[in-house]
């Protein structure tokens, strides 16, 4: 009895780790954008939703191979991120921070409704039959393991980009001192646009991983959007490594909480943990 219980708990923990990878990737894009542009994209999860639809339509409706469809989604959402910046964020960059928050909230409303209008409210999935992996008595879905690995690869890729390239270094620099960037010959406006594109691209990548595991529907953004914000804030907004670690903490709350109770209690515990943490360390777990 005890051993079986432990194995299931271990399974929940491992599933939490796997979930953490995807959440970490989600948080990464948001943190990147916040760190550089100082704007929170409330509609970030809706970009992910559109990415999921892109994969779905390219693959299921137009018969594009899954890998290519995923690539397509990364590109499409990347372009959407850049457009979001160009059309919506840039006009309000000089106005009050709360307006910047609200304007992306308006975009959230728009994208969610637009998706309902165009795609309908049905739940859709890729219909892929991915195998189940088992280790001893523990079972893990192949999709989750794959998602975890790709998420890790995505994070490593971003890390290399940010540390090795001129552009990436400039992106890190601008978060530390905006004003003097022109003296370095850096056009901040262009850099913002590029960063938004990359942020969107990361959302697109996350979308590919999520659509392997979950059905897509217009309101799916609301299910993991808030959790993504919590993760970013817990890690210290703009702190990419902090966000990454926070993703694993939060995913454990969800997974283990969901193991002992119902899944929504896992989320309740995660959110309550977030509120409590804010009261103990308002700057986030890893903020300065």
């Amino acid at each position: 009895m005890d051993t079986i219980f432990d194995i299931y708990l271990l399974e929940a923990i491992v599933n939490g780790v796997l979930l953490g990878g995807v959440l970490g990737l989600l948080a990464l894009g948001l943190n990147l954008v916040f760190g550089v542009i100082d704007v929170v994209w409330i509609c970030y999860a809706e970009l992910v939703m559109l990415g999921m639809y892109t994969v779905y339509f390219l693959h299921v409706v137009y018969g594009v191979p899954v890998l290519l469809a995923c690539l397509g989604a990364v590109v499409v959402v990347g372009v959407l991120g850049a457009l979001l910046h160009y059309l919506v964020i840039r006009p309000v960059l000089q106005s009050e921070p709360i307006n910047q928050l609200l304007v992306t909230g308006g975009v959230l409303f728009f994208l969610q409704s637009f998706a309902t209008l165009v795609f309908g409210i049905e739940f859709r999935n890729l219909g892929l039959k991915l195998p189940i992996l088992n280790f001893g008595e523990m079972y893990f879905s192949y999709a989750r393991v794959l998602a975890f690995l790709v998420a890790l690869a995505g994070m490593v890729g971003l890390y290399l980009f940010l540390t090795r390239t001129f552009l990436g270094t400039a992106i890190r620099a601008i978060a530390q001192d905006r004003e003097i960037m022109p003296l370095m010959g850096v056009d901040s406006r262009k850099l913002y646009l590029v960063t938004s594109g990359i942020g969107g691209g990361l959302a697109g990548l996350a979308a590919c991983l999520l659509v392997l595991q979950y059905d897509v529907h217009p309101a799916i953004g609301l299910t993991f959007g808030p959790i993504t914000f919590m993760i970013c804030v817990l890690g210290g907004l703009g702190n990419m490594i902090g966000g990454f670690v926070a993703a694993f903490i939060i995913s454990q709350f969800i997974s283990i909480g969901g193991f002992f109770f119902h899944i929504e209690w896992g989320y309740v515990i995660a959110f309550a943990f977030f509120i409590l943490t804010m009261f103990i360390r308002p700057q986030g777990l890893f903020g300065k």
Partner: peptide, 24 residues
């Protein structure tokens, strides 16, 4: 090239990364 008042280095980048931005 402009060396600004108060130096304005990027404090959380390494010396070499600061120099790298100079060569952007």
């Amino acid at each position: 090239a402009h060396v600004p008042e108060n130096r304005r280095l990027f404090p959380r980048l390494t010396v070499e990364e600061n120099l790298k931005i100079g060569a952007y």
